[in-house]
């Protein structure tokens, strides 16, 4: 029931966000229509980070308390996070094409997102290649901790690396109020969607564990 309310809320916010992004907000002068993609990219990137923060917290709690629900939380959040990181990369490429004329550029944000994606793919791989489930959970928790701590260092290094010749920034000057509103609604819509997906994934995984337990007894 509660998850249905969340789903409904997420749907309403998503419709509102689409309206704001495509109809309400004025087109940016410098970059034109392509700038609208920004209202998708920023929430997605933010969600990837939020998801991996949850992985980090879940991982620590699992190692300390050894309760499988923390592992289920971390695992599910990593999966949702990977989906959003992949979308960020795709949307980033689509954005890069008209702006820089190429599908991919080693711009700091794109580069660190790619590294992030690789880290959490490895996180999911560790689970499937571990000898048993509890070992996979422990190993993944370690990767979840190390990976998240690595994120700021990766961002710092890639920014310094490309820092010498700054790429075009999305905004000249500050955010207009209409743009800020659109962005905030979009972020809210995506965040609720994240919690929706996370809840569904956790529920599914708990059911799976239940079934396996029943079949073993």
């Amino acid at each position: 029931m509660r998850s249905n309310i969340l789903l409904g809320l997420s749907f309403l916010l998503m419709v509102a966000a689409l309206y704001l992004v495509f109809i309400y907000v004025p087109t940016e002068k410098e970059m034109g229509i392509v700038q609208r993609i920004f209202y998708l990219m920023v929430p997605m990137g933010w969600l990837a980070l939020l998801a991996f923060l949850i992985v980090f917290i879940g991982s620590i709690l699992y190692l300390v308390k050894r309760e499988s629900r923390w592992d289920i939380l971390a695992h599910s959040s990593a999966e949702v996070g990977i989906v959003f990181t992949t979308l960020t990369l795709i949307v980033g490429s689509i954005w890069a094409k008209p702006v820089w004329g190429v599908w991919w550029t080693w711009e700091p944000r794109l580069t660190s997102t790619l590294v992030l994606w690789l880290i959490y793919v490895a996180y999911l791989m560790v689970r499937s290649l571990a000898a048993d489930e509890s070992q996979g959970a422990r190993f993944a928790a370690v990767v979840g901790i190390i990976g998240f701590i690595d994120i700021p260092i990766v961002v710092l290094a890639t920014t310094l690396w490309r820092g010498m010749h700054p790429g075009p920034i999305i905004f000249q000057g500050g955010l207009a109020p209409s743009m800020l509103l659109t962005l905030l609604v979009s972020i809210a819509a995506f965040t609720t969607l994240y919690f929706c997906l996370l809840g569904r994934r956790i529920g599914l995984r708990e059911a799976e564990a239940e079934i396996r337990k029943m079949s073993q007894d």
Binding site: V115, I119, V154
Partner: peptide, 12 residues
């Protein structure tokens, strides 16, 4: 497994 974990983490 080792290179898959090692390379992304040491990129900085």
């Amino acid at each position: 497994m080792l290179p898959m974990l090692f390379f992304p983490i040491v990129t900085p």
